[in-house]
Write a protein that binds this DNA or RNA. Sequence first.
DNA 1: CCTGCTACCTGATGGC
DNA 2: TGCCATCAGGTAGCAG
Length: 276
Amino acid sequence: MPELPEVEALTRTLRPLVAGRKVLGCRVIHAIAVQPTSRRGAEQAAAAIEKNARGRTIRAVARRGKYLLLLLDRGCLVLHFKLDGQLIWFPTRRISGHVDVAFEMRGGTLAFVDRRHFGRVQWVDAPEDVPGIRKMGVEPLSREFTAARLAELLRTSRRPLKAFLLDQAKIAGLGNIYSNEAMWRARVSPQRPAYRVTRQQARRLHKGIVDVLRRALECCLRPAPDFRDPNWWFQGLETILAVYGRAGEKCRRCGGTIRRIEQSGRSTFWCLRCQR
DNA sequence: CCTGCTACCTGATGGC
DNA sequence: TGCCATCAGGTAGCAG
């Protein structure tokens, strides 16, 4: 379940490993992992990825929301991990286990792996060609994301706050876990319509979002991702979570009971007593 | 434009 | 123990 902090940690860790390297070969092993996913479309897209990635040099490794971008000297590889996607680095061209897409380079092979086939790889001329990226909202760890900006965005939406926070076109990179945590930190109810979030709550929410993402990013970088270990995944993030997955437990702040409710088909965890 | 619903996948989990 | 049903999650695409 990589959200912004996890993808940012992957990006930073991958950068020194592949930036400046040439993609000697690209193999799409499971076409289901490429976008678009219709049967014919996927095969065409798979061929396009292989053709367009081969021989290109990786100029930069970047992140936009939950997307990881490999900016090539011509075009761009766009990776989305969805729930369980991961990256594995093999020190040779020999790969093993389940691999969906392999990028061969001097010194090793970068593999995109997702047994559940939710994650996607695609090649585009420019990142903005991906609709999800073109519509992407403000980056919450950037300077443009201020309390005033958040308040302004909140005013424009009548949806429940939870749905607002999950909307990537409003704020980039929040998922089910950190949106829950941000609302708990801000003491705001997930059911409150976005436009009814008060000025003061918006200030607290802004701080809650920034703080929880920064804290999670610290955790994600220590220890840093290990692409060489196929079983590696982020550890210890549960310890920074106050509400997510804690239904029935006591609220750390007020002692109330954490509840799990369903909002637009997703789990929301919150404390009815102190989140208003 | 805005909003909400569902399909997409398959490993993990829970019930009997 | 084994089997089956259900769940989890982010996004695209579609309907209203």
